[in-house]
Design a binder for these strands. Structure first.
Lengths: 261, 261
DNA sequence: TAGTGGTCTAGACCACCGT
DNA sequence: CGGTGGTCTAGACCACTAA
């Protein structure tokens, strides 16, 4: 099966420089993106070789290459010399620390490698309910639509993070506390494997707040203790928001790590 | 003047695939980096065109292009179609918000554009002293070497951030409270223009802490209030650390914004 | 050894910018 | 208009991986 993008100028018809003009490699990129989204290639699998894709789309290898380059830069694909190009997966170690920014103060100053930290995740709750207004707004649901709420405790040594997670109910049917507890490994790994939902990017807002009674009890800190609140909105393909998460972190022996480039 | 990198394989001598092998475009990149560091082209200025550079280094335009691509991706250079390639500068609006991550809660949800926020910076103190152990360690100085310490208050509406900044004394001779107060605009703009020191990248560690008496007074919040502590280490060329900064932020009406890709 | 991604070249043409 | 960066091609060779 051959999909044909607009032909390049030197071959036949010309691209229209009109208002919707996009370079060839971006069109290829969009086609690749569509295939990824539709699951033509699954996370962890290899996509066709550059030569194959060039033939399929009837463009030069260089053009395919540039399309893939950007997707790889965006962490959607992973290039491996001599082996092929693979669909990125949250199961890989390399991808892990892209979203987990809380680190122990002493360890992993910059290299979160060989890090077999005893990261324990304890599911406290998993229930379905109608989306509160603010949650609905951020997830772009109608307020009152069903959502899944998860509460879990992350322990890196001491109890460190209490997460409150909201997910669209429709997309995450059949998600239960049992299923969550049975699964070991990153949450996003489960989401991608069991629900076909891959988190692509996220925005975060951080604040310092004082622990209320409930948080204090869960995290075993005095009431009023300063906590780091990390509010995250995660997106899948097409910039669809699919997870709202509020993490309350004890930062006595941990910190949130960030790099500015 | 012509500088000659190792010739490409197809032309004459071959690159040695030895342990120190680097592709041609990386060698060009290193040469460009050296010119940038040595100030051959100043921030805001244009560097020579791709064709010129290709001639100078005796490589093809495509190779120069790839070298520049990566430097542009790292925010060291800025490409402008039809005009040329320019040395990035902290004076440009585009670069501003790369390092300033504190935002008002309501505004600038994702687009920090057209943002003429009344950002007031009041210098409280600027003095020279001997580097405390921890500061010396992070700035890679011998403990006791001279450093400049700056304290300043940033007001976005209410007083919002108290910054404590340490700089290597040798690199920042002649820096004074007067000079700082006289300068309006981003601090890093002053550093790059007056001291030839351009901040390239930074690492940050964030924690939630309780305001002690001194902080409480400066920021006009009750003692014990939760504050967001942002500890930043900034680097210039060659991964030289040249600024240590501790920012204490009131996050009642502001937050720290971050994007995960 | 065959196949993959990675580098490099040379040349053509296009889009954008200032003059 | 001329110069700049941006796109696209075709072909060569290299480095890495797995069978």
């Amino acid at each position: 099966m051959i999909e044909t993008p607009i032909s390049p100028g030197s071959e036949s018809g010309a691209r229209q420089p009109g208002p919707t003009f996009a370079p060839l490699y971006r069109q290829i990129q969009a086609l690749l993106l569509r295939s990824l989204q539709q699951g033509e290639w699954k996370p962890g699998e290899a996509i066709p070789s550059e030569t194959e894709l060039a033939a399929r789309y009837r463009v030069s290898q260089g053009t395919v290459r540039k399309a893939i380059d950007e997707l790889a830069a965006g962490n959607l694909l992973v290039r491996r010399q001599g082996r092929g190009t693979f669909v990125a997966s949250h199961h890989e170690v390399r991808t892990q620390f892209r979203f987990l920014r809380i680190r122990p103060d002493e360890a992993g100053d910059e290299r979160p490698e060989a890090d077999r930290a005893p990261l324990l995740s304890r599911i406290l709750e998993c229930r379905r309910l109608r989306a509160p207004v603010e949650v609905a707004r951020q997830l772009r649901l109608r307020s009152g639509e069903p959502v899944v709420q998860i509460r879990r405790l992350l322990e890196l040594e001491q109890p460190a993070v209490l997460d409150e997670i909201w997910l669209p109910g429709a997309r995450f049917r059949g998600l239960s506390a049992e299923r969550l507890s049975a699964y070991s490994g990153p949450l996003y790994g489960l989401f991608e494997a069991e629900f076909g939902t891959r988190m692509i990017r996220a925005t975060e807002r951080l604040k310092a707040i004082a622990a209320d009674r409930s948080l204090a009890r869960s995290l075993k800190v005095p009431e009023g203790s300063p906590l780091l609140l990390v509010e995250r909105l995660s997106f899948t393909y097409e910039d669809q928001p699919v997870e709202l998460r509020r993490g309350y972190c004890v930062t006595a022996r941990h910190h949130y790590y960030n790099e500015l480039n």
